[in-house]
Design a protein around this nucleic acid. Structure first.
Lengths: 284, 284
DNA sequence: GCAATTTTGGAATTTTTATTCCAAAAATCC
DNA sequence: GGATTTTTGGAATAAAAATTCCAAAATTGC
């Protein structure tokens, strides 16, 4: 009704801002106001900040109890944040929680029930390993290192890609993507070791990929390149990898294994991102 | 009421069982009754089984709409499962509720904020593509086809693996895993086409991998194998793939692309599962 | 210390949501 | 084919939850 100017008001339209449009915005706004909030409202803010994930499944009364305030305080809190009320705030969190693939976990469970060792159970395990790897990568990715790596490779004449054994699929995919992106690249496959030394020219760069147990040949090539003053980018499993010593930019990927085999999901995601970024950095 | 008392007291209340005490028990009970359920109730069951994780954040009306039934049908469904009503069922799921975020999805969002085309934004996209691919695979995997494929390959003397271009990384990884599992395998890499024909021996099998646009050489090899009566297993993107014609077992993987490049996550998960299953089937 | 302003708690109210109930429709049985 | 049982849809009702409102308490400014 009187949503707009009431008759007698000190018109202090501090915030005509609408409700937060995302969970992130919600957090930002919450942090902004947190400091100048009266006692009870502050209790709400603290409790809710610490329990954001329960907003979607709680009632006003429950949150109020949790924060040890009366329900009306929670309502006020919602309004201060820009929502029309609690329901609007809750809607934000209910919608934000929408993994597009609801029956994923059910289905995975069914697959696993095929019995330990059955093909479908194996598949479920590898799917899960891959997914965990990707999520871990999302959390741990080093943005600075990635930018460095792109810069190094974008400045090279030819990119020498080396990766053997388990790393070879990644190396070969990188070579493929580089070719598609018109980046001069050379895939070293470990046969004819002598060729390597001659192939490395000034202004080239090396992209070396290896995971424990680290492949001798890959390390050697990286070392050679370093000795000649060529920049080396490492794609490896951890910061203690021997590759780290020779490298100018280090990308680590947290890959979850199942049994003896890597899912490679995270490694490949990182590899493609790198290659495409290098490709477009060169293009422009 | 029955006048004549039968020997057994089958006029007892049908359900003395209380409500499911856990999500697992819920699933079990749902699976039990699923088969003998009238039409509308079955719609509920199907929809809810496929959307269990939305129960915690939905209203009866919302679920009813989703399942395309009236709200009362949903209520009946809850009661059949042993709950006193929807609220009790919802309580179970609300207690178990714990969303995957904030970490993962917030972080992804931050990565993307590096700006379109930035290396980290690309990484986020590929991570997301990979994850979606894996989840889609979990949903769509054809257990029967997988078992067929394992049977075919486990019975072969030598497995010929062929996959070129984008499929080559997968093929090479398969070759690696087969080697580790002591399965005689041969990786065909497209150079020296003539070799292929001679390499195929009676009792061998072919594992062909290709995605649109399908590689000529791969199709040719599969066709040759078929012509000689060798079994062919296809790992491809859809049922309309030209590979399907020559194949005895068809594995399709729903891979989500970002830009021009496949994440390969799902394909590799399927490939490893297949290889490991074949390896252990032979071992025993 | 007094008046003005802000903050608070909880009761009253409104809105939404869950739940029941029953007549009609459909299916099943004899 | 008619009687009986099961299933269904939706209106009616009950319950729960959200939201508003206002008087009392606390705080602030002078």
């Amino acid at each position: 009704m009187d949503q707009t100017h009431p008759p007698q008001t000190d018109d202090l339209p501090d915030e005509i801002t609408g409700p937060p449009a995302s969970v992130d915005e919600f957090r930002t706004r919450l942090a902004d106001i947190l400091d100048d909030l009266p006692r009870r409202l502050r209790q709400c803010a603290d409790y809710i900040a610490a329990n954001t994930d329960r907003i979607a499944v709680s009632t006003v009364a429950e949150l109020a109890t949790g924060a040890d305030v009366p329900p009306s305080a929670v309502m006020r809190f919602c309004q201060i944040l820009g929502f029309s009320g609690f329901s609007e705030m809750q809607r934000l969190f209910r919608e934000a929680y929408s993994p597009g693939w609801p029956d994923y976990s059910t289905r995975l469970k069914n697959l696993k029930e095929g019995g330990a060792g059955s093909p479908t159970a194996l598949l479920a395990e590898f799917i899960e390993a891959g997914r965990q790897s990707l999520e871990a990568l999302a959390k741990s990715a080093d943005e600075v290192a990635l930018q460095q790596a792109v810069a190094v490779l974008a400045g090279a004449d030819t990119v020498h890609v080396v990766g053997l054994r388990r790393a070879f699929p990644v190396a070969s995919y990188l070579a493929y993507v580089f070719e598609k992106m018109s980046v001069p690249a050379m895939l070293h496959d470990g046969v004819g070791k002598l060729d390597h030394r001659f192939a490395l020219r000034p202004n080239d760069a090396v992209l070396a990929i290896t995971f424990a147990p680290y492949s001798e040949e890959t390390l050697t090539l990286a070392q050679d390149a370093k000795a000649r003053g060529l920049p080396v980018v490492a794609l490896t499993d951890r910061m203690t990898s021997p590759l780290v010593r020779f490298s100018d930019a280090i990308l680590t990927v947290p890959e979850v294994d199942f049994g003896a085999f890597r899912s490679l999901s995270a490694t490949i995601a990182m590899a493609i991102a790198l290659a495409v970024a290098v490709g477009s950095a060169r293009g422009s």
